[in-house]
Design a protein around this nucleic acid. Sequence first.
DNA 1: TAGTGGTCTAGACCACCGC
DNA 2: CGGTGGTCTAGACCACTAG
Lengths: 248, 248
Amino acid sequence: MNAPLPKHIHQRIRADIEGHIRSGRWPVGHAIPSEADLMTAYGCSRMTVNKVLSSLAEQGIIARRRRTGSVVAQPSIDKAVLTIRDFPAEAERSGKTYAFDILAQRTQTADVATAARVGIAIGTPVRFLTTLHRFDGQPEALEERLINLDAVPAARTEPFDDRPPGTWLLAHVPWSEAEHVIHAANASPSLAKRLAIATGTACLIVERRTWQGDTLLTEARIHYPGEQHRLVGRFTSTGLAASAAGPE
Amino acid sequence: MNAPLPKHIHQRIRADIEGHIRSGRWPVGHAIPSEADLMTAYGCSRMTVNKVLSSLAEQGIIARRRRTGSVVAQPSIDKAVLTIRDFPAEAERSGKTYAFDILAQRTQTADVATAARVGIAIGTPVRFLTTLHRFDGQPEALEERLINLDAVPAARTEPFDDRPPGTWLLAHVPWSEAEHVIHAANASPSLAKRLAIATGTACLIVERRTWQGDTLLTEARIHYPGEQHRLVGRFTSTGLAASAAGPE
DNA sequence: TAGTGGTCTAGACCACCGC
DNA sequence: CGGTGGTCTAGACCACTAG
């Protein structure tokens, strides 16, 4: 049942504590043995114990307080970590072929509405790209992207021959902050046509904005067709675990 | 510009490194000074430096390799942390009044389809609840919930007078794992009627399943009406930051 | 082989805070 | 006051790996 005796002391300590918590033997609020207790229990130095407990506290698994000791932390169920993969990576994961078509593009300066929406100055040069992502030839999602050419000048002449804009950007541009907004909307006639679905079909829309410092780098609005697409997030109360996203 | 001189050495080291990364001065792949270099630069012991770098590596901000040293890690933009708040908490946050109606409920044993879907044994006693959540009197979301009464026996007779099932469960039941699935669907006539929207309106559906160990505790399917509802996640490349979820 | 990180020790002093 | 965690030191040996 237990892991096969980890090589390092800190792994054993950590596995033991996490096991107690995950199994429910140590419920929320339950006291963790003090550092001194764990020292003697595992026959190691305090620094070793301290590194484990500090790490657990950093991850929100336990809460540490002076004098009263450490306790199992209340996990916040209201955080869901979703993976929203790069399209080529997602296709590979699901064993499908990936292809993309750039349906439309233009380079211009940001008008008032655009500038206000994404928080850039009016007149900033931007490149718009409309990309259809296809898995096994079938439309998977439609992406409408804006790239701030002041922030990413190399994108002005990039042909995006072998990689779609999102993948290219991810590899070339360092970023510091990102925001995702997810909502649902009925497909417009033009969107429906390009995704090969019926007008009015419910679509999942993921908007992603990425910044470097205060400068917006890019904004993408990705439309997933109908009920086919699901964003999946899985996590545990003892830290966050990765997940899968994609069609059923 | 810099933070006002942190008290501890490890805070200074960490702030300096994160600052270099976030500002873009140290792009992805850029080498982090070795532990020995940082020791001499900050005039501290190796253990202090090591704790900082280990923590940064644990959070995925840097990647550490023997012999070649540490480098700035490639941030994974594909993770979105969404907060999916408890309804009373969400109402309070947005300054609205909260109310809920339990529209329907029944207690029975799990049939084949239910058992298979959520992974419990056929015949397990379960309680189904259909709850309408209202903000300022208006329908905010419709929740269809299943509770495993073998795992949460106290839920069998709980009247849910003052708190909706989800809030009650959060406060009473320890859990270890959770999964969220988000997708979009067109509102059925009955759903549309209860949410006071037009049939066929695109809805955002959040399914949440919660386990304790291998035992499913509860499953909730929450339908948010139309384009009104948005899930928002914000994060930084140097670790994850919390976010907001809600209408508008 | 040499340089890097991975781990660990056996101490130390301090800040906090409930009793 | 005493016990807790927070931080730090000045070493040590080992594992891994590029050159």
